[in-house]
Computed example of a mutant assay.
Amino acid sequence: MKILHLSDLHLGRRLYHHSFLPQQEKMLEQVVKIAVEQSVQAVLIAGDVYDKNVPAAEAVTVLDSFLTALSEKKIAVFLISGNHDSAERLQFASQLLEHQGVYIAGTFSGEMQSYDLEDEYGKVHLCLLPFVKQAALSSLYPKENFRSLSDGIAHVIGQTALSEKDRNLLMYHGFVLHDGTPPEESDSELQLGGTQLVDASVFDAFDYVALGHIHKPQWVRSGKMRYSGSLMKYSFSETLQKKSLTLLDWKEKDNLTVTAIPLCPETDMRIIRGKLEDLLTYAQPSADWIRAELTDETLVPYAMERLRAVYPNVLELEFLSQSERIAAGITEAEAVPEKSLLELVDSFCSSVYQYELSEHETAQALMQSICKEAEQTE
């Protein structure tokens, strides 16, 4: 049996008012093509289907087209909600969609939804566990005293009937500890004291766990537990990541081959670095989303406009030398309260913009008047 595992579509994602949706639609067309070429029996979508809990109408339309295309090819689809999704909205029409081979676990009511897939090697018992918090599990099981999310999920799995003879597969959306350490990109959860981290041993009863939530493709346990990663690069922190789909080729229970199939976006997300003139001289025009990091010692006027003549989708611009100066300046202790407002403004203009107010009489007089008025209104 061949199964395609993906997650974190984040349909409707925007960055600086730029919509990813046209590219997401093309990426999903790639997914359908790969699913057909690989003759997969099922596609798993492990959460964060949408980027917002109230998705834009256009994002819903793109998902509708994707699910319809797979249904027409007689490929079953199983999807669960992630932390970005509205579980109730995702659950809408789920009973009706099951007749079309689309199975949705949006809300969690205390018992995992499970389904059996079958081929010449027997059954694949598939369990769906959407994103859920410890507080929700505690309210669903008021007689239990869960000390952690791991305890709660272990209890849920313990209530689920599994056969040791069958191939057991779980879909889950959340942070799972990798040999006792958090997966990459889990800083936000660590700031919460690790309350949403789940120990990998909780899932020992399953032969494979299809995970969602982490955008970088990675193993938690090699051959057993994997994050497929996001559909696309969604921030400049992801520029070095290679996005892919995870293909399971499963024969007997202990005969599972896992392959990463690369995804090829038409529009990439990149960071370019160097002096402005060098970037413009040696550049090749590109529609990629760009973060430009300039190494010029001084600020260059109209840098963004000049870059966009070659890179129309420059979204971020930073002068690295200026950032270093600001960072160094922050470490210098100053008696700020003893300075006047005008002195503070003068210091800011000098350190950030290398603009000396004292050298420009008109600007200094205007700023002096503004600061005087501001101090009188305090």
Rank of each mutant, 00 (worst) to 15 (best):
S139L: 15
S138Y: 01
N145K: 12
L140H: 05
V132Q: 00
L140P: 02
E118H: 05
Y141F: 15
Y115F: 15
C127R: 06
L129P: 01
E144L: 09
L140G: 01
C127Q: 11
K123Q: 07
V132L: 03
H125Y: 06
Y121F: 15
G122I: 08
A135Y: 02
E120Y: 00
E144K: 13
K143D: 15
E144P: 03
V132C: 01
D119A: 09
E120A: 06
Q134E: 15
E144Y: 05
P130Q: 04
E144I: 03
S139T: 14
L137Q: 09
S114P: 00
D116W: 07
L117D: 11
Y115S: 06
S139F: 09
A136C: 00
D116S: 12
L126N: 09
P142Y: 11
L117M: 14
V132G: 01
K143P: 00
D119Y: 07
P130S: 01
Q134G: 07
H125V: 00
H125A: 05
D116F: 13
V124A: 11
G122E: 10
D116K: 12
V132M: 03
E144V: 02
S139H: 13
E118W: 00
Q134F: 00
F131K: 11
P130N: 00
K123S: 06
Y121D: 11
A135W: 02
F146K: 04
C127T: 10
H125F: 03
L129D: 03
E118T: 15
C127N: 07
Y115T: 04
D116G: 06
L129Y: 10
H125W: 03
P142G: 06
G122W: 10
G122N: 09
S139Y: 05
